[in-house]
Every structure is written in C-alpha cells, then in structure tokens.
Design a binder for these strands. Structure first.
Length: 472
DNA sequence: ATGTTC
C-alpha cells in the first residue's frame, strides 16, 4: 500500500500513485486511524481510488471499517459520463437508513410506561432474522412498492400525506421492478413492514443535549423531548438485488475491459446495459426500504397512541427526516453530474443546496446518526463544508468487534441487566443479538461525531440518549 | 446486513 500521510489533525491521505486516479482521504483522529489499520479499510480505500471516473478523493468517514470491496463508511463520486457504478459501493443492505420521529412527549409522560411502550412496539413491528411482515402483498402491490417507495405505503394509509416531504428524495427514486429478479421479489414480498436483525433497531430516546439552539429549534427539537428512531433497510429484497447484480457485474467488468484491483469491486459503466439495470434495480431496493420504514412508522405511532391513549397526531409524532446511508445517487456538484456512491455514509446537504424539504431550505438537511444501544445517537445538520465530501458524513459508531468475537465475549442477559441499571430497557428477539450488538462492540460514537463536527463534514445539533430499545 | 454456504 502507498504511504499514509497525516495532513491535518483529523485528515489522513494516501497520495495518488500507480493505478490510482485520485488520492484517498480518510477523516479520523489517531485512535480511529489506528483501528482502520487493523483491517483492510485503508487498502480498500486505495483500491476504490483506482475505479474509472472517480473524482476528488476516495473518501473514508471516521466510522470507516472493512466492507465488501469498498470500505463501509466510504464515499466515491464517479463522473456521470465516464464513470462506473458498483454494487459493492452501495452494499448489501440497499437504502439501509434512519428515520427520526419527533413528539411533544417528555420524560415524565413516558418513563413509567417505557417498558409497555417498547413491548407494544416490539409486538407490533415484526422483527428478527427472517421476520415476515403482517401484510399480504400481491405481486402487483410489490411492483408498485418497487416503483414508488414510501408513496405506496402512504396511499395504503400507512402514515400521513405530509410524511413524504420529510424523507430523502420524498421516499421515492427511479426504480424498475422488471430489473429485480423473481427471487428478490419472493424474498421481499413477505418481509415488507419488518425490522430485521443485526444492528437494526427501534428506540425511544430522549434529547439530553443541544449543541445548536437555533438549528435545533428550526428542526423542532429541544432538550428533554422524547423521540423515536428507527434503523432498518430493504431486508432480504435488497440483499438479493445486490447478490444478483454482483453476479451480473462479474461478467460486465470483463466485457467492458475494466481494470479493477479487487474482484469485489466488480462494476460496469454507468451508461451500459448492466450499469443502468443495476441502477434501476438498486432504486427499487431503495424504494422497498422507504416503504418499509413508512409502514413501521405507522405501527410505532399506533403503538404509542394505544399505550398513552392519545391520538398519534396530537402527540406530534411527525417525521424529522428519513435519510439513507447505503445508496448511489445521481447528483449535481459544482455544476457537474456524478454518480455518488455512499456506503455507510449519510447524505449531508447544506442550506441552499436544493433537494431539501421547504422547511429545511434555510437551515440545512437534518442528518441522523444512529449510535449503539447503550450510548447515544445524534442529529447533525449539513453545512457548506459538507461539500468537501460531495455532501456526506458518517453513518454511525462503526463496529470494532466481529459478531463472532462479540458472542464469545458477552452474554446478552448480562448486557440487558447492565443497561437496565442505566435505565435503558432492552427488548430483543434473542439474547444473542444483544451480545452481538453490545455497546462495547462499537467505536465511541461521541468521538466519531466530534471528528465529523470538527472537520466540518456536518455540524452537531442534538444528542439523544436511549430509554428503550426494540431489537430483532 | 442476510432464508449467516445454491
């Protein structure tokens, strides 16, 4: 690997050499870069810099770690005319993302009932590995979901009309069900409206710190406010779409004579049959995830309303925002079109950038960053300097301990007891998933967020502490 | 992340 140079307190670079088209740039402090050196993160960032059409840098966010081909926490912007698109640059969980619901509830409104609320949500939202939704979808319904995303769910009365405007791309990107395999549809159909497993979660949280009063107030957030966060994606549907197109790309990269330093970076020109097909299928996977989060939103509102015995609308359970962190999008930056791959990276658009809901046009985009279940999550805001990474920031704490190592080291029951002492109630499908997702298996979220904040990838607005967690 | 090896 080429030499890694520290260029400022929180920026490292691998200079452009050999097959690299651009340098790699890594946002990290000393502790975070040390972790990245322990796996293939940096090598993968260098590999990505060799891909056709990449401009600027091959970026790694502070929560970066090794992934399939591309690092997780990676951003790569490809020139729209000459660049490639790669399933590895998006990841298996297409449009994995986060949605935050606000409320007008306070600690005392919910503390006594926090277990009941979480249990109700847990019961009302199917979760766990292989979990199936409660809704029987016809193949026509599923095609509609793959075409229009969250809009389908709202039209079916899962949520409110006003929900759509507070979702990235209004919960709908260009998709094409005919580019999605029958297998992906078969896996997806029974899973729409389910949480899944692993790091996916539903949380009741309290805002315990505000960093920017003015922006928080613009977002309708204040200290002591109760919020509900969900973190989930496109389930087996997106996973299958990714697998299918990695196979397609195995043929395509050879067909188009694309040189790649790692087989896992298989790709095709954006303007090729294979590239266009993947882009549309990926869009359908993204739409599935947005419809999924929309249905879950409806059931969360229903659950809270039924425990608190009030109309969810009177409880102010509005969407702050819903943002993807595994997606490729065609975006204009500096007057030029790019295919921006964000894999474990969150879009962070600043005020005046466009493509934002009206209410945020003069504030900037809410950036929602999920942390681990024992520590915190954050709301940030996109700022002008977010443009250094084509409008992107981190997506979470970033795993440091493998799932298998976590299971060896922790017992789920112990973690649940420990968190209970900290007044965090955990309801999980299995103790195993709690061990796998123990707070200790993640990097320090505060640290990751601070690096993003200090280096200007986004600005801190509010911190949310978990009170109750439902996990698959 | 994931019908955790079609």
């Amino acid at each position: 690997m080429s030499e890694l140079k520290k260029v400022s307190e929180f920026i490292y670079e691998i200079e452009k050499k050999g097959e690299m088209n651009v340098p790699a740039r890594i946002y990290a402090d000393d502790a975070l870069i040390k972790k990245m050196k322990e796996d293939l993160t940096l090598k993968q960032a260098q590999n990505v810099s060799c891909l056709s059409g990449i401009e600027g840098y091959s970026f790694v966010m502070p929560d970066g770690h090794q992934g399939y081909g591309f690092p997780i926490g990676g951003v790569a912007a490809m020139d729209y005319e000459s660049g490639i698109i790669s399933p590895g640059g998006v990841g298996y969980d297409i449009n994995c993302g986060v949605r935050l619901l606000k409320s007008n509830l306070t600690h005392e409104d919910v503390f006594e009932q926090r277990k009941e609320i979480i249990d109700h949500i847990f019961k009302n939202v199917p979760s766990g590995l292989g979990s199936q939704g409660k809704v029987k979808l016809s193949s026509k319904d599923l095609d509609e979901v793959l075409m229009v995303g969250a809009k389908w769910a709202v039209e079916e009365d899962y949520g409110w009309k006003k929900d759509l405007k507070n979702i990235e791309s209004e919960g709908s990107v260009e998709g094409d069900p005919t580019k999605v395999s029958n297998n992906a549809k078969k896996r997806g159909a029974p899973q729409l409206g389910s949480l899944g497993s692993g790091n996916h979660f539903l949380e009741m949280q309290i805002i315990d710190e505000i960093y920017d009063e003015k922006i928080a107030s613009g977002f309708g957030l204040k200290e002591g406010q109760i919020c509900f966060m969900m973190h989930t994606g496109s389930r087996g549907c997106g996973h299958q779409i990714c697998s299918d197109y990695i196979q397609v790309m195995e043929g395509a990269y050879k067909k188009y004579n694309i040189k790649i330093p790692d087989r896992e970076l298989v790709c095709a020109p954006i303007h090729s049959k294979e590239g266009e097909d993947y882009f549309k299928a990926m869009g359908s996977g993204a739409n599935f995830a947005w419809a999924n989060r929309q249905m879950i939103t409806h059931w969360i509102r229903e659950s809270i309303g039924s425990v608190i015995k009030e109309d969810p609308e009177d409880l102010g359970l509005d969407i702050l925002f819903d943002v993807a962190h595994n997606i490729a999008k065609i975006e204009k930056h500096n007057g030029k079109k790019y295919c921006v791959h964000r894999k474990g990276a969150t879009r962070a658009f600043w005020k005046g950038r466009g493509e934002l809901p009206k209410e945020y046009e003069d504030i900037g985009q809410p950036v929602i960053i999920p942390g681990d279940m024992g520590t915190a999550s954050y709301v940030m805001v996109g700022i002008k300097s977010s443009s250094q990474t084509f409008g992107s920031t981190c997506h979470g704490a970033g795993r440091i301990l493998s799932r298998s190592a976590a299971i060896k080291k922790f017992r789920g029951e112990d973690i649940i007891k420990r968190l209970e002492k900290e007044k965090i109630y955990v309801k999980a499908a299995s103790p195993k998933v709690v061990a796998e997702e123990a707070p200790d298996v993640y990097k320090d979220i505060h640290n990751v967020i601070d690096v993003c904040d200090k280096v200007g990838l986004a600005k801190k607005v509010a911190r949310l502490r978990p009170m109750g967690v439902a996990k698959g």
